[in-house]
């Protein structure tokens, strides 16, 4: 028995050293565990939401809560629309001079509910109630009306694990909307990201909007990521240190949308 335990520790140590050196980890075992725990998490999440709904909509000022929900939804839509308009105006100016402008098809979306969160305090991921059967695949971007949420790292039959952009292993190629300066957004803590590799020559101000650049091949261009919260420009060095506050409130994450591949992408893969 003692030899067995020693062997287990040795095997475990090897697995740990291999997986710790990779940014995204094993997919196989996770699918099994997520498939097992998923249904229980789904039931628990629905029960919690049901209890929370009863409290907020029946006992806690019925009319005010409903109006508030409606107005919040409308505001989210308006914010997204405003950002889209701003992006369209900016890109229109640049693309006006390009003759080979090609209009891209919008990607199909699927709504999913968050049914569980990462058990550890160090890693930031959530489990959603959509998986391979619904078309969700590993590497699919996950968004909300407010902005970018994360990326699917494991997909089981009916459930998937999403790595949030605030996780330390997450990286999104981004642009500063105002001056188009490029950088990489990485998870820094519970509610903020660091923006790395922004050249010192760019003027970055607190409150500037940060959007996805589309160059990482995961997130389409123009999705809202966050706003600049802090800028540290040291006397020496090529880059400046920038911190972003994401638009998405990850503490209150309940529903998300997964971007599915376009039909044309799938046809290309088929070839």
């Amino acid at each position: 028995m003692v030899v067995g335990v020693g062997l287990l520790i040795a095997v475990n140590l090897m697995a740990l050293s291999v997986s710790a050196s990779r940014r995204y980890y094993f997919a196989g075992p996770a699918n099994v565990a997520v498939s097992f725990t998923g249904p229980f998490q789904e039931i628990a999440a629905h029960a919690i939401r049901f209890a929370s709904e009863i409290w907020h909509h029946y006992f806690y000022l019925v009319a005010v809560a409903r109006t508030n929900d409606r107005l919040e939804a409308a505001l989210k839509g308006a914010a997204q629309y405003q950002n889209q308009c701003m992006e369209l105006a900016l890109s229109n100016q640049r693309l006006r001079y390009l003759l080979n402008f090609k209009e891209k098809n919008p990607r199909p979306l699927i709504a999913a509910e968050v049914i569980g969160r990462d058990p550890s305090p160090w890693f930031k991921s959530v489990t959603i109630d959509k998986g391979v059967s619904e078309g969700v695949a590993r590497g699919a971007p996950v968004v909300m009306a407010e902005g970018v949420v994360g990326m699917v790292t494991d997909a089981a039959n009916h459930y998937a694990k999403v790595l949030l952009i605030i996780d330390q292993n997450s990286a999104v190629d981004v642009l500063l909307q105002k001056n188009r300066a490029r950088g990489v957004s990485k998870g820094a803590s519970v509610d903020r990201c660091s923006l790395d590799y922004v050249l010192r020559k760019y003027e970055v101000d607190v409150g500037d909007a940060v959007i996805s650049s589309g160059l990482d091949g995961v997130f389409p261009k123009g999705l809202r990521v966050g706003t600049v919260e802090k800028v540290i420009k040291k006397n020496a060095g090529v880059f400046q240190t920038v911190y972003i506050k994401p638009f998405v409130d990850f503490e209150k994450l309940e529903e998300v949308m997964v971007l599915l591949p376009r039909a044309t992408d799938l046809r290309d893969v088929g070839r």
Binding site: N12, L13, A15, L16, S19, A20, R22, Y25, F26, P29, A30, V32, A33, V34, T37, G116, D118, P119, S120, W122, F123, K124, S125, T127, T153, K161, L163, D167, N169
Partner: peptide, 10 residues
């Protein structure tokens, strides 16, 4: 380990 986003084995 399977449901966490951390390295497998922690």
């Amino acid at each position: 380990d399977s449901i966490s986003a951390g390295p497998f084995g922690i």
